[in-house]
């Protein structure tokens, strides 16, 4: 834990040091580059803002209506017969739409069952090996005005499914 904490603390300072140091060694105007690049950051945020509003309103409405819970219970029963814990299903569902909402559910599980329980281990691994499909697709495709996403969703779902299956399997092996 100590070593890892140290490493993750080191990542960002090291990257900054490397980039700025490298630029200086090449005798480049690093400060100027940084300023003109930083301006672009504002444009990036402005570009993803509308998509983010649309998506977060969608997720907010779905959650508040109780539909996600309903779907979770429904799929939870099906999952139960496959030997997957029903509590896992809402996390998997929400994970595809919103990272922060999924983190909230994940912390609920930590609180109730503990992070070292089978369920706690499973969600930990699952959160680490999956991504927010619809957020990523919306932000990237909307930015280039692509409407037909072709096989992206199928591939993304397959990758997520593989991640979830591996998480359930590996968490079981850990105990």
């Amino acid at each position: 834990m100590k070593l890892l904490g140290y490493l993750s603390e080191l990542t960002i300072p090291l990257i900054i040091f490397y980039i700025v140091g490298y630029g200086l060694l090449q005798k480049k105007q690093v400060y100027e580059y940084f300023i003109s690049g930083a301006e672009e950051g504002l444009r990036v945020v402005l570009r993803i803002l509308p998509t983010l509003v649309g998506l977060m309103v969608g997720v907010g409405i779905l959650r508040a209506s109780g539909f996600l819970d309903f779907l979770g219970v429904l799929l939870g029963r099906a999952a139960g017969s496959l030997g997957i814990s029903a509590e896992l299903i809402p996390v998997i569902l929400v994970r595809m739409f919103s990272s922060s909402a999924a983190t909230g559910l994940c912390l609920d599980i930590f609180k109730e069952y503990g992070p070292d329980s089978l369920l706690g281990r499973t969600v930990s691994i699952m959160m680490s090996s999956t991504e927010t499909i619809f957020y990523t697709m919306s932000v990237y495709f909307m930015a280039v005005k692509v409407k037909k996403t072709r096989y992206t969703l199928a591939g993304a779902l397959l990758a997520t499914l593989a991640g979830v299956a591996a998480s359930v399997f590996l968490a079981g092996k850990m105990g």
């Binding site: 900054i16 980039i19 700025v20 490298y22 580059y33 690049g37 930083a38 950051g41 504002l42």
Partner: peptide, 15 residues
């Protein structure tokens, strides 16, 4: 975001 795009731009321009 501005910090990262600034650093990325620096990394790009300096090769």
């Amino acid at each position: 975001m501005a910090l990262w795009t600034g650093l990325m731009h620096t990394a790009r321009e300096s090769g």
